[in-house]
Simulated assay, not measured.
Amino acid sequence: MIYDHPRAYELACSFRDVSAEVDALRSWAGESRDVLELAAGPAEHAREFARRGVPATALDLSPAMCAYARERGSGLPLEVVQADMTGFRLGRRFDLVITMLDSTAHLMTLDDFVAYLTCVREHLAGGGLAIIEMSHPADRLGDTPRVSNAWTVEKDGVNAHVRWGEPWDELDPITQVVRDRVTIAIDGGEVIEGIVPYRFWTATELTAAIRLTGGLTVEAQYGDFDPEVTLGSPHAWRMITLLRRAS
C-alpha cells in the first residue's frame, strides 16, 4: 500500500510548495490560534504551521503516516492522532481545520462525506474556518485534465519518477470510484506500487453534502492557492472551498 511508505509518498508530493500554500491558508484564515489537519498523511502542512509557532494537530488513519509525522515533527508544537476523519472526537475546537491534497477522495459515499463534515463542524470554534482542497472537476469531466498523472521530482538529492494512475484506470460511472495504479520509482532501484481507490466528487455533490451537514456556510471557492484564480478559470487546477462555522 502506497500509504505504508510515508517517505516515498512525501518525496512523490514534493513538487508542492507547502510554505507558499500555508501562506495562502493563513491569508484566508487570519491569525489562527491553532490548526487541525485531517487525513494529514505525513502532515507537511501541520508541520509548517507548527514551525511558525502555531500549535497544530495532525490526524490520519495510517499508523505508518502517524509515526512518520511524529518523527518529522519532533520538537515542534505538533500533536499526531491516529483516527478516521469520519468519526473522531478530540474534545476541543480549533480556529482552523484543513484537509489537503484531495484527501476527501477517500470518502466513498455521501454518508461518509457528511460524517466527515460533521466532525469538521464539531471541531471548529465559533467563527472558525475549514479549508478543503479537492481535485478540480475538470480532471474527470473536462476534455483535458488540469493535472498530469506523471511527473519527476527531486528532493535532497533524491529523484523519483511518479505515475499516479494509468490510462486504463477507468472511472466506474455508477460509484464514481476509480482504482488508480500508482508507481513511485526512486533512483537506486526502489519501486513502490499500489492501487489506490479514489472517489470523484463534483461541485454540486460537495454543495449537497454541506447542506445536509448544516452549520457551515461557503465563504469562498478558488481554483488555486492564488485567490485571483476563480473556480471557473481555465487556469484553475484545484477546487478549494472555505467553510465558516457560525459564531
Rank of each mutant, 00 (worst) to 15 (best):
P63E: 05
Q82I: 05
A40V: 03
F49E: 00
I98D: 01
S14R: 12
G87K: 12
T57P: 01
A64S: 08
L11K: 15
S27I: 12
L78Y: 05
E31S: 14
R26T: 11
G30A: 15
V22E: 07
L25E: 06
G91N: 11
L78H: 04
L76Y: 10
P6K: 15
G53H: 08
Q82S: 00
E44I: 04
Q82P: 00
M100G: 02
L36Q: 12
R70V: 04
P77Y: 14
P77V: 08
L38K: 03
S62E: 05
L61E: 09
D84G: 03
Q82G: 04
M85D: 04
D34Y: 14
R92D: 10
V22D: 02
G41D: 00
E21N: 08
R70D: 00
P6R: 09
R33L: 13
S14H: 15
R93Q: 15
V54W: 09
S19K: 13
E37W: 10
L61F: 11
F88T: 01
A83Y: 06
A40Q: 06
S62Y: 02
C13G: 03
V18H: 04
E31R: 15
A64D: 02
G91K: 14
M65N: 02
S32N: 08
V97T: 01
L59P: 01
P42N: 11
P77M: 10
L96R: 09
A29D: 06
R72V: 08
A8L: 11
L36P: 00
E44P: 01
E79N: 08
A56V: 10
S74H: 11
G87A: 12
L59W: 03
S74P: 02
D34V: 15
D102L: 09
L90K: 07
M85H: 07
S32C: 14
S14K: 12
A58Q: 01
R70T: 01
C13L: 12
D23G: 15
R93S: 11
E44A: 10
S103C: 09
V35M: 08
A40G: 01
A39F: 09
G41P: 02
A64W: 03
R26N: 08
R70P: 03
L78G: 01
D84Y: 05
P63M: 12
V18S: 02
D60F: 06
G41N: 01
S19M: 14
A58F: 03
V22H: 05
L61M: 06
I98H: 04
R47N: 08
F94M: 13
L96C: 07
E10I: 08
R52K: 07
L25T: 03
F49I: 02
L61Q: 09
E10Q: 14
G73E: 02
V54D: 09
A64I: 05
F94D: 03
G41A: 07
W28P: 00
G87F: 14
S74Y: 15
L11M: 10
R72H: 05
F94L: 11
S74T: 12
A8R: 06
E21I: 12
D34I: 14
L59M: 10
H45T: 08
V18C: 09
G91D: 14
A20L: 15
A20R: 15
A64M: 04
L25F: 15
R52Q: 03
L96Y: 10
V22L: 08
Y9F: 08
D34A: 14
G91E: 13
F49L: 07
A39R: 04
V54P: 00
R26A: 11
Q82Y: 12
V35H: 04
T57S: 06
L96V: 06
A56Q: 05
A29F: 11
L101D: 03
